[in-house]
Amino acid sequence: MDKLFGWLFGSQPKTTEKAMDIANTAPLTEEQLKTIVSNQNPHFDLQQLVSAAGQSVGKQRELNEDSLLAITSTMAGNSGNLPFGLYVVADGMGGHQFGEVASNAAIRTVAGYIMKKFHPYLFQVKSEPMDESFQELMSAAVNEAQRIIQREAPGSGTTLTAALVIGQQITIAHVGDSRAYFVYPDGRLETITRDHSLVQRLQELGHITPEEAENYPHRNVLYKALGQGDILDPEIFTLAFPQPGTLMICSDGMWGVVAEQDIIRAINEAPNLQRACQNLVTAANTAGGPDNISVVLAQLIG
């Protein structure tokens, strides 16, 4: 029976551990380790973009004022199939139902604007080269959203963190305190956006420490939001997609609640992105779920 179980479940003879201790085996080289690791990971010879998303109203709110959009595709073209992705998280505010209107309008306007521009490249046989750069496109989309929100929900506001992925380029448009991260398989996490919040600004200036920031009374004050102010100046920048690595965009219902270490673990230990999203949302709710939760994950594989 022992043998049978051992065969079925791969349990090892009891003596192995001892033998391992004294065994003097040749260590694997870095190269060999890399090959083994990469063989375990999914691989495509043409690069593929994959994504997953998760949302929850949280445990303490009745309304969901977050909005989320995730589109993943490839653009067929002469120089191969180019990964195409558009991921947007918006966290509405304003203290009443207008927060929801604002985040909704932001998502629809930004995504609508960009998809219209890419329509010829995704769905038409003939297309002229685009006469705008990625960054100009994102800027125009955000300004359009600003105009629409001021018209449709005057006085309200929303955060907006949008990522346009074309090939290996990620172009981010960012206003407010939703965040974009790169999470690497070696356990590093890099915040690639900067919160437009008072508490963040005071930390940047060195007037309060990260510890003081945790308990700062005005943690929820933003100095920049979509829909607010005469002049909007979104942060727009382009980075290379981390390979290997995961792009994560989330609202503060996620990053403000779940510790960085837990975020990293949830992503790196999950068998796939869908499960990783599920784990992240569960973690935020387990921690009390004080706010709406939105998260998008994307990876470029190959």
Partner: peptide, 12 residues
């Protein structure tokens, strides 16, 4: 003619 740009995020 000016809008206040400091917004307060809603907490529960």
């Amino acid at each position: 003619g000016q809008t206040i740009i400091y917004l307060i995020r809603r907490t529960p």
